[in-house]
Write a protein that binds this DNA or RNA. Structure first.
Length: 560
RNA sequence: UGGGGCGUCGCCAAGCGGUAAGGCACUGGAUUUUGAUUCCAGCAUUCCCAGGUUCGAUCCCUGGCGCCCCAGCCA
């Protein structure tokens, strides 16, 4: 773990942390700090959620507070138990612990109902029987005030009766809603008598068929925060307009008042983050599933090989602010490399094999080269790399007509096999179509693996695998899912920006013998190529499948 | 000429009246049996614009300009 000691002190790093630190210093809420992460269980968590998670859990952790996990499950038609388990697994994987503090908005349904009754009695809520369409017409526009609905003047008694009958199931879905009586002329649209309850004869994943009316987000979220005595309710910018409503309900009800703060949601280049779009990618099979390694979901990233710590580091690096921002993919990738560079054992794997025969090496001979598992971490130990007369190298490491700056293999050129001999290419073998299918080389016995430099100046070093002992594997290389930084741009269809080459499958590839029992999820650096891990879904002993997590930086590729 | 939010380097982001942190990206150069890592160096006389207050403003005031969000019985 490279927990980079940064940020472990209580030093504030963003406006939220500043506010929290100040409140704590002023002994607001008796020095108590409680945040919450409130996902709706209708999909999988993505990297954007991770930002919120790291903020909410992070602040609590740093300041000795608590962070609740609360499922905001007020819409039974969209929510499923499947997602609850997945969300919890993602949270744990990221390394956060909510302890006993697992809550559900649905557990507050009875209390919420009572509060609604309280508002009706106070003349602050009424039952509406206009249709959604009619309500919209009366709502006015951004520049014109709305008009009061006839239902607004109903008596408290009638409202009470009607609301109870709504609960009892006397009305069809959509027939009526309970609305807050605020101000149809409010400049803030959210205050134009917003809906509090709708009728939904739907089975709820937790409350079953107990209810046929369900509270809206606005009537559930703040009160849930209040019930849990959340001190700092942190959400994204688009809810800023709801804050006056959040405060209004709490004030009318006279209950504990948490404070809502808003920060800018994460936008990452070359991907999409909205749950709707992610759902669509899965539904339309544009990807293989929520855990497709190209998805920005936590399950996808985990399967791809991103370490949880890299995601946490990423969330720290990008900061928390209020301005809309797009983060470069390179920031995330650097976090992944930083982490993996320190922790991943090294190995060699040839992805695009080209056979090389060392003509002056005895046919029946085999030897082992001694190599470090990690060049910078000697404590990780050594590995033995088998070598024999026939090996594979990557096609990219050979050029028939190499440019001046290419210092790998070419006709009559020398190159060093990593941890092995220096070889020289003497002959090129082609098939009928003229394609190069084999190289004939000779080796210099004086340059064997462990031997220190012998004065010979060989610039190029390439990776290779002994043909006799190689493990045939499949390698999947991923690239960005979209070919433009902001898929869909302004009004366009983001699907049209999908990168057709975001998945490249190579087989057979040849891996160093030691990789034979690679376990899914465990990261390796395939030297000179990048970081890889066996796929948790498709890799099987004897039929290994490796995912490329991220490439190594490649200044040569850039130079080209 | 509705309301809310935001504008500091290509992308993020500190800064809160005293003369522009840091990260990513980029550009050199050193070390290197990964063209990786590491390492050193460079990278905003300027903070959306224009006025004003002040000895002094990215930070205060005024007026512009630009971008984002809101008219779900979604969250």
């Amino acid at each position: 773990m490279s927990t980079e000691a940064q940020g472990t002190e209580s030093r504030p790093r963003d406006f939220i942390r500043n506010i929290v630190a100040e409140d704590l210093a002023n002994n607001k809420h008796d020095g108590r700090l409680a945040t919450r992460f409130p996902p709706e269980p209708n999909g999988y968590l993505h990297i954007g959620h991770a930002k919120s998670i790291c903020l909410n859990f992070g602040v609590a952790e740093e300041q000795g507070g608590v962070c609740h996990l609360r499922f905001d499950d007020t819409n039974p038609v969209k929510e499923e138990t499947e997602f609850i388990e997945a969300i919890k697994a993602d949270l744990s994987w990221l390394g956060f612990d909510w302890g006993e503090n697992e809550y559900y908005s649905s557990d507050y349904f009875e209390q919420l109902y009572q509060w609604a009754v309280q508002l009706i009695k106070a003349g602050k809520a009424y039952v509406e029987d206009l249709s959604g369409e009619e309500m919209r017409k009366l709502r006015g526009t951004l520049t014109e005030p709305g008009t009061n609905s006839p239902s607004r003047e109903r008596s408290v008694e009638e409202n009470l009766d009607l609301f109870e009958r709504m609960r009892n199931g006397e009305f069809a879905d959509g027939a009526k809603v309970l609305r807050a009586k605020i101000d149809m002329a409010a400049a803030n649209m959210n205050l134009r008598d917003p809906a509090m309850y709708r009728i939904l004869h739907a089975h709820h994943h937790r409350t079953g068929n107990d209810w046929c009316i369900y509270p809206m987000y606005d009537f559930a979220h703040g009160q849930s925060d209040s019930i849990e005595r959340i001190t700092h309710s942190i959400c994204t910018l688009e809810f800023a307009d709801h804050r006056p409503l959040y405060d209004w309900f709490i004030e009318q009800l006279g209950i504990f008042a948490p404070h809502q703060y808003e920060f800018a949601r994460l936008n990452l280049g070359y991907t999409v983050m909205s749950k709707r779009k992610l759902q669509q990618l899965v539904a339309e099979q544009l990807v293989s599933g929520w855990d497709d390694p190209r998805m920005p979901t936590l399950v996808g990233m985990r399967r791809r090989g991103y370490p949880a710590q890299a995601i946490r580091t990423f969330c720290e690096r990008i900061g928390v602010g209020k301005s809309d921002s797009w983060i470069d993919l390179s920031v995330l990738e650097e976090c992944v490399r930083d982490e993996l560079n320190e922790t991943a054992p090294r190995a060699m794997c040839v992805v695009k094999p080209l056979k090389v025969v060392i003509t002056d090496y005895p046919e029946d001979q085999q030897e082992m080269f001694d190599a470090p598992i990690h060049p910078q971490q000697p404590q990780m130990g050594r590995r033995q790399v088998p070598f024999s007369r026939e090996i594979y190298i990557d096609r990219d490491d050979f050029m028939e007509d190499p440019p001046k700056k290419f210092f790998r293999l070419g006709p009559d050129r020398e190159v060093r096999l990593r941890y092995g001999f220096v070889i020289k290419c003497n002959e090129i073998i082609r098939d009928d179509s003229g394609e190069v299918i084999e190289l004939r080389c000779t080796h210099d016995p004086a340059t064997a693996g462990g031997v220190a430099a012998e004065g010979r100046k060989v610039k190029g070093i390439i990776h290779w695998v002994c043909a006799k002992t190689a493990v045939p594997v499949e390698v999947r290389q991923y690239d960005r899912l979209f070919q433009v930084e902001q898929p869909g741009g302004k009004e366009g269809d983001y699907r049209e920006d999908i990168n057709a080459d975001s998945l490249q499958v190579f087989t057979p590839c040849y891996a160093e013998a030691g990789l034979a029992d690679a376990e899914p999820t465990v990261a390796y650096q395939f030297e000179r190529l990048g970081y890889f891990c066996a796929d948790s879904r498709d890799s099987k002993p004897g039929a290994l499948v490796f995912n490329r997590t991220v490439t190594l930086r490649d200044s040569w590729a850039k130079a080209k």
